[in-house]
């Protein structure tokens, strides 16, 4: 199949960036990233600079890949990362627009590569359970209801790719933040420092400059792991509880 790719090229963070058009020959068994590999090999053969993009595991779990394809993070298919998207979902002759995440808190590094360290800092602000190695009691000492463990897992399945913020019309990172807060807060082990964690993580999220959730639901549609927006509601409730239901802070 013959495709025209309209790809965002930006030399570095100071460059303004622009779209460039490329012709590429693909076949339907390729993944989207393999199609990008073909394009890059073509560019290298012409001694041109290849398109920088992030990718690693290519099986949908590391969270590295991040392309906005025709306006949708990770492309048109729900529950799919860019690396899992295959060319059979496109037609011969299609023009495909490829852009980086456009979120102020994720500045562009080069072409399609952005800096997502804001997510690391949100986790560092409290996205953990404070337990040192060796302190743990027996793993079966605290029974956890099967469904509750499942609910925590559903939140914990987040791969930290940033599609939620990229998809959100407000560039909000609340799906990411709430997923970690709930993963830990739902479990008895994490419940102990839940209030402190909610406050710290929300504060850090705000400091990073993400937008505010207006409940459009775009995040849950474009989340490759289909994490539910109900996580944001649960975070909101926990946050209100942590402010008004606690005697800490003055």
């Amino acid at each position: 199949m013959d495709l025209i790719l309209k790809v965002w090229r930006q030399k570095n963070n100071k460059d303004n960036g622009r779209f460039e058009n490329y012709k590429v020959k693909a076949n339907e068994h390729m993944s989207f990233l393999e199609m990008m590999d073909v394009l890059n090999e073509d560019l290298l053969a012409k001694k041109e600079e290849p398109i920088a993009f992030e990718h690693d595991c290519r099986e949908g779990i590391c969270g590295s890949c991040n392309m906005v394809i025709d306006g949708r993070p990770h492309g048109p298919n729900n529950g799919t990362t860019t690396c899992q998207l295959h060319m059979r979902f496109f037609k011969d002759g299609d023009t495909i627009t490829v852009e980086p995440w456009r979120v102020k808190a994720f500045p562009v590094i080069k072409d399609l590569v952005v800096d997502r360290s804001a997510f690391d800092r949100i986790i560092q602000s409290g996205g953990y359970i404070s337990v040192n190695t060796g302190q743990a009691q027996d793993a079966n000492a605290i029974p956890i209801e099967k469904d509750l463990a499942g609910q925590a897992f559903d939140a914990a399945t987040c791969i930290g790719c940033g599609a939620c913020a990229a998809a959100c019309p407000n560039a909000s990172a609340m799906l990411f933040t709430s997923a970690k807060i709930n993963h830990l807060g739902l479990l008895p082990q994490g419940e102990v420092e839940h209030s402190k964690r909610v406050q710290a993580m929300v504060t850090q999220m705000d400091e990073e400059g993400f937008g505010m959730c207006s409940n459009t639901g775009a995040c849950e549609v474009d989340c490759p792991k289909e994490i539910s927006i109900s996580n944001i509601a649960l975070m909101n409730r926990s946050y209100v509880g942590s402010v008004f239901g606690s005697d800490k802070g003055s």
């Binding site: 009691q137 793993a139 479990l187 082990q189």
Partner: peptide, 15 residues
Amino acid sequence: NIIDQAAAQGVPFAR
């Protein structure tokens, strides 16, 4: 010890 440690960290193992 690994399983104990992971459970304490909040790893949502199957139950």
